[in-house]
Design a binder for these strands. Structure first.
Length: 640
RNA sequence: GCUGCUGUAGCUCAGUGGUAGAGCACUCCCUUGGUAAGGGAGAGGUCGUGAGUUCAAUCCUCACCAGCAGCACCA
C-alpha cells in the first residue's frame, strides 16, 4: 500500500493505489485547486496518474518553474485543435514547448499567415474556456497507427512507426480531439489560462531535414498570467532596440548594402571599435606566446585539393579564374592550410613545440543567402585565428591555457557567463576509434583541469576531431558560436606537416584550431547588443565630447579636446549654436560615455564640468586632473 | 537554399491606376541659451530592378535582386 512522502517529509499512507488528484484532495481543498501536475520520484507526470507504490510526491502548481512548460505544451495542443477545427484537412505533426513559448508544425497546402492568427486565437480561447479534461490513454502500437491512419494523419503514423520497441504509446484527448503525445499535461485546457499569444509563422522541415517536405509552423508564447505576458512582450521590444543592425546605423558604425552582400562597410566609428578590439587581442596573443603571421587571400586550388576543402567545402568557396592563366585560385575560407605551409618551411624540431601561429585572417565563405544576418553571419569576415602545432601530450596543457585566456578575454569584454558545448565524434569521421578516444579523453581531462563545465553536443564534432564551442547569446536570446577549440589529427597528415622528435625521427604534430572572438564581425555584433551601444569607456568609438555653452568658450573647448586627444582619447567637439540641453540630448542618444561641458566659468578657471552618460550629477574639476582621470579610465583592461 | 512577409526621402513610416506626403535628420537665417529637443525658412524621392497588362503603373501580374523571421546550413 503506497506511502507517499511529501516535500515537508510528512508521510501519508493509503490502502489502495491513489491518483495525484486524490492525494491532493486528501491534503486540502487549496492544494486540490492549485495542483496542475506532480513529480513522482522526480518524474513529472499527470495528476491523474495512479501511484501504486511508495513514492516521494511533489505537486506542481502554477507558481512552480515546471508550470510554464506545462502551460506551453498544453497551449500547443489547444492550438492544434483550434487549427484543425478551423482548417479541415490540415494534418498535425509535433508541437513542443520551447523557451518562452511553444510551436506546432502543421502540414497544409496553403501555409498559415499572421492574418489567420485572430481567428485561431479566438478559437483557442473558446477551447480554453470549454475546459475539457486532458485524458491519457495507453494503446497498442497497431491501434494507435490505425487510429491516425483513419484520420489521414500520415505524419503521426510515421511517428508511431518510428517509436522504439517497448516504448509506451499514449494518446491525450481533450474532449473530442486526440493527439499522440508522451505528456504530461495539466488537468484541463482551462489550466492553459489566457496569457498566450500567437507570434509568427515560419516554414520548418519535417523532422528538421531539408530533404523532407516543409511544414507550416505557428509560434506562440504563453505565460502564467497577463502580467508575465506583457513583461515578455515588453522585453522583446527592448531587445529590438539593442539590435546591432539598428545601433550600427544609429551610431554610424557600419552599413551593409547590395553592392557587397554579406560584407561589412565599416564606418570610421565602427572601425575604431574594431581596431580597439583588434589591438587588444593582438596584445593578449603576444603575451600568451603566439606568433602572428599573415597569409594570402587567394590560394591555388591545389592546396585546397590537398587539404580536402576542395572536395568537401567547394560550394562554400569563392573561386577566382584569371583569363590568361590556367590556374584556378580560391579565396581562402579558412587559414589553417596556409599556416601548415608556413610550418612546413624548414625542418621543425620538437623544441619548437607547442608552436602557436596566430593570424587575424580574412576569410570568405559563400554562405547560403538565408543564413546571412547583419554582421553576425556574413560572407567576408576576419577571425582571431590561431593554430597550435603540438604533440599529443601537449593537448591538455594547451587546452587549459587556451580556456584561461578565453575566459579572461571574455571577462574583459564584459561576458561573464557563456556556454560551452563539447562536440564529440560524428558518424562520418577520419581517424580510428583509438585516436578519437585519446583526443576526446585529452579534451575532457583538459576541461576538468580548466574547470570548464560543458553540455555534450553528441556527434557534432568536426570530421577530424572533437571540438569545444564557446557560445554567446544575442539580445533576443539567439545563440552564436564565437570561440572554438578543435583537435585535429587529419590536416597535418594531409598536408604532410612534421617535426623531428627527441628520438631524431620524424613525427606528425597535432593541430589545435582555436579562436576566441571567433570572427570580429560576429563578436562585435554581439558586443554591440550586449552593451546596447553604451560601451565602457575603453571600447567607446567616441569616448568624449566637449560641448560649449556659449561660443566665447570655443577656443578653450578646442584646447580641452586637444589635451584629451594628446592623452589618447577619441574626442569630438560640439561648438554648434544649440542650447546645452540639445547638445546633451544629442550626444546622450549617440551613447557618448563622457561629456565635458565648458562655459565662461570653466574657461576662466581652466576646469571642465564632466557629465556621464545617463547620469544626472556633474563634477567640476581642473582640466589636468580630468585628462589624467579619463586617460586612466580609458586604458584597456589588460593595460591597467 | 526552403517557407512566409517586406522593399516609398538619410531614418521611421503614411498614401494613390492619372509620375507623391508626414515627423525626425540635413542646409541656411535668427537665437549665446548652464546639463535630454529655442524659433523660422529651405532643400531632398527614376516609389528595389526588369518585363507585362493598361490610354495611363509607385499602385495590378510575372520574374529577378535585397532585407526580415523561422527552418536547413555554419568547415
Amino acid at each position: 500500500m503506497p506511502a507517499i512522502t511529501l516535500p515537508d517529509r510528512t508521510v501519508r499512507r493509503y490502502d489502495a493505489p491513489v491518483t495525484g488528484t486524490e492525494v491532493a484532495a486528501s491534503i486540502g481543498p487549496g492544494l486540490a485547486r492549485a495542483a496542475l501536475a506532480m513529480k513522482v520520484d522526480g518524474a513529472l507526470v499527470d495528476l491523474a496518474t495512479p501511484i501504486d507504490r511508495d513514492a516521494e510526491v511533489v505537486f506542481v502548481t502554477r507558481r512552480d518553474p515546471e508550470a510554464l512548460t506545462l502551460i506551453r505544451h498544453d497551449a500547443a495542443h489547444v492550438l492544434a485543435e483550434a487549427v484543425q477545427a478551423l482548417y479541415p484537412g490540415t494534418q498535425v505533426t509535433i508541437g513542443p514547448a520551447i523557451d518562452n513559448g511553444f510551436y506546432y508544425d502543421f502540414a497544409r497546402n496553403e501555409p498559415f499567415t499572421p492574418e489567420d492568427f485572430a481567428a485561431i486565437e479566438a478559437k483557442m480561447r473558446e477551447i480554453v474556456a470549454r475546459g475539457a479534461a486532458f485524458r491519457r490513454q495507453v494503446v497498442p502500437r497497431d491501434e494507435a497507427a490505425a487510429l491516425f491512419a483513419a484520420k489521414g494523419e500520415r505524419f503521426k503514423v510515421e511517428l508511431i512507426r518510428d517509436l522504439p520497441d517497448g516504448e509506451e504509446i499514449s494518446l491525450y484527448s481533450q474532449g473530442e480531439w486526440v493527439d499522440l503525445c508522451r505528456g504530461p499535461h495539466m488537468r484541463t485546457t482551462a489550466d492553459v489560462g489566457t496569457a498566450f499569444k500567437l507570434m509568427k509563422t515560419a516554414g520548418a522541415y519535417w523532422r528538421g531535414d531539408h530533404r523532407n517536405p516543409m511544414l507550416s509552423r505557428i509560434y506562440g508564447t504563453a505565460w502564467r498570467d497577463q502580467k508575465e505576458l506583457d513583461a515578455y512582450l515588453h522585453m522583446l521590444e527592448e531587445a529590438e532596440r539593442r539590435d546591432h543592425r539598428r545601433i550600427g546605423r544609429e551610431m554610424d558604425l557600419f552599413h551593409l548594402e547590395e553592392a557587397a552582400v554579406g560584407s561589412v562597410f565599416w564606418h570610421p566609428k565602427g572601425w575604431r571599435l574594431y581596431r580597439t578590439a583588434e589591438s587588444y587581442m593582438r596584445r593578449r596573443l603576444d603575451a600568451a606566446g603566439y606568433q602572428e603571421v599573415r597569409t594570402p587571400q587567394l590560394v591555388d586550388r591545389g592546396l585546397w585539393e590537398a587539404s580536402g576543402h576542395w572536395e568537401k567545402f567547394r560550394e562554400h568557396m569563392f573561386v577566382a579564374q584569371v583569363e590568361d592563366e590556367k590556374r584556378t585560385l580560391a579565396l581562402k575560407p579558412m587559414n589553417c592550410p596556409c599556416h601548415v605551409l608556413i610550418f612546413r618551411q624548414g625542418l621543425r624540431s620538437y623544441r619548437e613545440l607547442p608552436l602557436r601561429m596566430a593570424e587575424f585572417g580574412s576569410c570568405h565563405r559563400y554562405e547560403p543567402s538565408g543564413a546571412l544576418h547583419g554582421i553576425m553571419r556574413v560572407r567576408a569576415f576576419t577571425q582571431d585565428d590561431a593554430h597550435i602545432f603540438c604533440t599529443e601530450a601537449q593537448i591538455a596543457d594547451e587546452t587549459v591555457r587556451f580556456a584561461e585566456l578565453l575566459a579572461s578575454v571574455y571577462r574583459d569584454f564584459g561576458f561573464t557567463d557563456f556556454r560551452v558545448k563539447f562536440s564529440d565524434r560524428p558518424v562520418v569521421r577520419a581517424g580510428d576509434d583509438a585516436t578519437w578516444d585519446r583526443a576526446e579523453g585529452a579534451l575532457k581531462a583538459a576541461c576538468a583541469t580548466a574547470g570548464i563545465t560543458y553540455e555534450l553536443n553528441p556527434g557534432e564534432g568536426a570530421f577530424y576531431g572533437p571540438k569545444l564551442e564557446f557560445v554567446l547569446r544575442d539580445a533576443i536570446g539567439r545563440d552564436w558560436q564565437c570561440g572554438t577549440l578543435q583537435v585535429d589529427f587529419v590536416l597535418p597528415e594531409r598536408l604532410d606537416a612534421e617535426y623531428v622528435g627527441e628520438d631524431g625521427a620524424r613525427h606528425r604534430p597535432v593541430m589545435l584550431h582555436r579562436a576566441i572572438l571567433g570572427s570580429f564581425e560576429r563578436f562585435l555584433g554581439i558586443l554591440i547588443e550586449q552593451y546596447a551601444g553604451r560601451f565602457p569607456l575603453w571600447l567607446a568609438p567616441v569616448q568624449a565630447v566637449v560641448a560649449t555653452i556659449v561660443s566665447d568658450a570655443d577656443t578653450y573647448a578646442q584646447e580641452v579636446a586637444a589635451a584629451l586627444r594628446a592623452a589618447g582619447l577619441a574626442v569630438e567637439t560640439d561648438l554648434s549654436n544649440q542650447k546645452i540641453n540639445a547638445k546633451i540630448r544629442e550626444h546622450s542618444l549617440a551613447h557618448v560615455p563622457v561629456m565635458l561641458v565648458v562655459g565662461r566659468r570653466e574657461a576662466e578657471q581652466r576646469t571642465v564640468a564632466i557629465r556621464r552618460l545617463g547620469g544626472e550629477a556633474q563634477s567640476v574639476m581642473p582640466l589636468d586632473e580630468a585628462v589624467a582621470a579619463l586617460a586612466a579610465e580609458a586604458r584597456p583592461p589588460d593595460l591597467r
